[in-house]
Simulated assay, not measured.
Amino acid sequence: MTAFRRVYGAHPLHLLTLIAGFALFGYVIVTLGLPALWNPRTWWQSIVVWFVAAVVVHDLVLFPLYALADRILAFSQRISAPVPVVNHLRVPAVGSALTFLVFSPGILEQGAPAYTAATGLTQEPFLGRWLLLVAAMFGASAAVYAVRLATTRRSTALPT
């Protein structure tokens, strides 16, 4: 095991995961076929273009932004507090980002004619409902933080 780590540089499970990922990628290519991944008539609708754009946007824009936000949160941990606040901000922020990512077409009212034709409804309530969900996530996190803070103060105030 140590010889493998010395040669490869990581645990064998890492190599197994990489092989499984590439096997899954190969299966998708074989199943969908290359014409499904690249559409020469409308190139911007190709899966390959969207995948490369997602990688570039994530690596060059989003990752630096949320790494900076996390550094700011980590810096706030240096302030002495009985209960660290960092995870009480991280969890609802990640939940907000993921729900926005999943429901962004509805929130941004993209594809409104198709949505109205399929359901008979409009996409107007999506933004308000998402904002309520975000407020509820941060509110629940704040309530959990307040309870933890109160129990921590109470337990430190009690004589042992």
Rank of each mutant, 00 (worst) to 15 (best):
T2F: 13
F4L: 10
R5E: 14
R5L: 06
A10P: 00
P12M: 06
L13Y: 10
T17H: 11
G21Q: 07
A23P: 01
Y27K: 08
L32W: 10
G33L: 01
L34E: 05
P35Q: 08
P35E: 10
A36Y: 11
L37E: 00
L37C: 00
W38I: 15
W38V: 15
W38L: 13
R41C: 00
W43N: 06
W44P: 00
S46D: 04
V49N: 03
V49Q: 02
F51L: 13
A53K: 08
V55F: 12
V56A: 14
V56G: 01
H58Q: 14
D59N: 15
D59S: 15
D59Y: 15
L60I: 04
F63H: 15
P64Q: 07
P64F: 10
L68Y: 12
L68A: 14
A69R: 00
D70G: 07
L73H: 07
F75I: 06
R78P: 00
I79F: 14
S80F: 09
V83C: 08
P84N: 13
P84S: 13
P84R: 13
V86F: 05
L89G: 01
R90D: 07
G95E: 08
A97D: 05
L98P: 04
L101D: 08
V102K: 11
P105K: 07
G106I: 02
G106W: 11
I107H: 07
I107M: 06
E109G: 00
G111C: 03
A112N: 02
A112D: 07
A118G: 04
G120R: 05
L121R: 15
G128P: 02
L131S: 05
L131A: 14
L133N: 04
V134I: 10
V134G: 03
V134S: 03
A135Q: 01
M137Q: 13
S141F: 06
A142M: 05
V144C: 09
Y145Q: 04
V147M: 11
V147T: 10
T151E: 06
T152D: 06
T152S: 08
T156I: 14
T156M: 15
A157K: 03
P159W: 03
P159G: 08
